[in-house]
Amino acid sequence: MTRASVTLNQDCVPNSANPHTHLMLVGDAADAPYPRVMFGCLRPEFRGHINSATAFAQAKVMVAASVGTPPWVPTAAWTEVLLPAPACDRFSDPETLMRAVDLERPEKVNALLSYFTVTYPVARLHVMLDEVRGFVREHIVEAFDVAALIVLHDPGRAASANLPHVHVLVVPRRLTSIGLAEQVGALTTDKAHPLIRDLFLTHWSARR
């Protein structure tokens, strides 16, 4: 059965307290079976709001952080950077990677980040993490020679009934031994949602 891709926040107004209002999000319809995948491109500017890869990533890493928590101290259930083989090890630090995205941004760039979220019921968080990590390494990092930050959220920690989910923040520029290079066009378009969703569903189904 072919799944529909629908815009999830068509009329959103940018709000500094909600990173999901800083980009257009496309995802599976509400009645689609799990797993569901949501996708968006964090562009340099969205509806008058100037975006920052650093700020967006930090908000995901420090979800529901208490007032006074030092910057970049993770409160998410898990954070991890996956790097292509040629990349310098220093980019394994999320802050270093995201600051490089902002500081080394070309004048014309389609997207600072390609962002997708995978959600489905799971009995063990480590199983979900392994499944999504394996997908990201094979189909994103190694396929396109890009870096990706994985952030696992467990809403149950905040007494929420929402399902666990994994956010993936992809830097859509090739990462070489020299540093950030050219953009990866396949990852810098809002039309990438069906591509990533279908690749993940195939990967996920193969493990069942």
Rank of each mutant, 00 (worst) to 15 (best):
V67M: 04
L175R: 10
P121H: 03
F200S: 01
V146R: 03
S160K: 07
P71R: 08
Y115A: 14
V81R: 06
K191L: 12
A181Q: 04
V73P: 15
D28T: 01
A64W: 10
V168K: 03
A181W: 10
A57H: 14
K191F: 11
N162F: 12
V122I: 08
G185E: 04
K191G: 09
P74A: 02
V81P: 02
W72C: 10
G48M: 14
N51H: 13
I150K: 06
N9Y: 02
V37R: 05
F46Y: 15
A59Y: 10
V118R: 03
L129F: 12
A161W: 08
H153F: 06
H153R: 05
A57N: 13
Q10I: 15
S92P: 03
R137L: 04
H153K: 00
A4N: 00
S177K: 05
F135I: 00
G179V: 12
L82R: 06
P164D: 08
M128T: 08
V67P: 13
P71Q: 00
V151N: 11
V67W: 10
L195Q: 05
G185A: 06
C88S: 11
I196V: 13
M1R: 09
V127N: 10
S66D: 12
I196D: 01
A111L: 07
V184M: 01
M24Y: 10
L169M: 09
L97G: 11
M1I: 08
A29H: 07
A158P: 03
L25S: 00
L82E: 11
R173K: 12
V63S: 11
V26S: 04
